[in-house]
């Protein structure tokens, strides 16, 4: 998908208030998405840019705008300069120098300054948080983005649960997932 088409689609999703929460495992509505206001605390234009950039970097066309809002805010709160970096990244991609994520590594070799911005965006969508959570401490710079819809769970959605949601009944675990032979 081209960048401008992505931008248009993202904008449509935002302005129509459409929300899709993908990757559900147990059919339980995601609480964080459900409670988040869709009203954007950032101006619509900037936001659609961020959503489009996120779609491009994650190669996912169905990203939830509510999660995008949280990711954007978390990343800008953590780093005031984030928005500027994201704009430069977007501009560089739009300049046509990166067609899709298959070319990411060589593109980044030419734009090393943009790599960490790209990885921070991808990481927020996949891990569902920004910053570095502390395992044995109550203070850190981690910020919440998403849980059930974090992209890290999608590739295994047919095989394992998103922890705290269940995948089956007692003793289902005795058998491997049906996909075993091709895993």
């Amino acid at each position: 998908m081209t960048m401008s088409k992505m931008l248009r689609e993202a904008w449509r999703a935002v302005s129509s208030g459409a929300r899709r929460s993908a990757g559900h495992v147990a059919g339980t509505p995601e609480r964080d998405a459900a409670l988040s206001p869709i009203a954007l605390p950032v101006d619509g234009h900037k936001f659609s840019d961020f959503l489009a950039l996120s779609q491009f970097l994650t190669e996912k066309s169905d990203l939830d705008p509510a999660v995008a809002t949280r990711a954007f805010l978390a990343l800008t709160e953590a780093d005031e300069a984030f928005e500027g970096h994201a704009n430069r990244l977007l501009a560089a991609i739009q300049d046509g120098r990166l067609a899709d994520m298959d070319g990411f590594d060589s593109f980044m070799a030419a734009h090393p300054a943009l790599r960490s911005t790209a990885m921070r965006i991808i990481s927020a969508w996949y891990l569902g948080y920004t910053g570095t959570p502390a395992p044995l401490d109550t203070e850190d710079d981690a910020r919440f983005v998403a849980y059930e819809s974090a992209l890290m769970f999608r590739p295994t959605a047919d095989a394992t649960a998103v922890p705290s949601y269940t995948r089956g009944r007692t003793d289902y675990w005795r058998h491997p997932p049906a996909s075993l032979a091709t895993d």
Partner: peptide
């Protein structure tokens, strides 16, 4: 469920795109 640890490691290695999804499944399994 190891997805978070697996994904964190893959992102640290700079794996992105389709490879990232493939590797999450491969390593988690």
């Amino acid at each position: 469920v190891p997805n978070q640890e697996v994904t964190r490691i893959l992102l640290e290695r700079g794996v992105v795109g389709k490879k990232l999804d493939e590797q999450i499944r491969h390593m988690s399994a």
